[in-house]
Amino acid sequence: MSEIKLTQRKERARFPVGRVILYALLIFWAVFMIMPFVWMFLTSLKTRPESMRIPIQWIPAEAQWQNYAEVLNKYDFGRYYFNTIVVTVITILYQIITCSMAAYVFARLEFPAKNFIFMACMTVLMVPTQMIIIPRFLIVMKLGWLNTFAGIIIPNLPSIYGAFFLRQNFMSIPRELDEAAMIDGCGYFGIYWKILLPLVKNGLIAFGVLSTLWCWNEMLWPLIVTSRADMYVLSIAVSSMQGQQGNNLPLQMTAGVLAMFPMLIVFLIGQKNLLDGIALSGIKA
């Protein structure tokens, strides 16, 4: 008994030191995480010479807000916003519905070859995108979808990650609920739609946010299937800026900030559900 007390006292005695180190580490890492964003934003407000001073000049003498006006007007970012939003909204709506259906089936129903189909789908996660992009492109071309929203959107719609992610959510709900509903005369679809879907709402939101982030940031595929600037999405526009304005850092960074800003908002709104949802996907693996 006395021994336990001793160790506890020792713990308490060095408590503040540990706390200080702990906070110092946490804050250090937070600064490391945030610094690139701060640098990016400040650079977007600099003049070109200011952006290349040695040693670094952190604060621009005068904030160059016209950089934003220039990128928005001259480089047609309005159009790119529109395209990216169309692509993202359609993709996430479709994915949430189809992935949750597939997830329900994989989590709950038994049928021949289920495990085979599931494992086959999972191996797809290991295939590098660069490997399949050209055959995929040929398929899209045969379908006549080049330079259309269909071409950008449809091939990225089937999300096996989404099905896997949501399956974990369904599995965390007790089966007794299904059985009770079954007795009340509910069919499989009814159970999915009326009973389970509302219960995995948080998982759906988490997946929705995650999928929004990926869809918004995707670059290689939209680039390959579009050849007209009026079909470009934001990620292409940002890397175009890097190509066109190779040594104009402020403009490049302005484009980057503009492209990232909406996602920052989406993340901040959905962060609670997202972070909890991601956590769940890992625990039940």
Partner: peptide, 28 residues
């Protein structure tokens, strides 16, 4: 802290490389 630590995962890869190329410059 949780939100801050997650921020980089929200970022566009195109922008990440662009920014870090500057941050890693040996002179400025």
């Amino acid at each position: 802290f949780r939100v801050i630590y997650f921020l980089p995962s929200v970022t566009m890869a195109a922008a990440v490389g662009m920014v870090w190329r500057q941050l890693l410059n040996s002179q400025y």
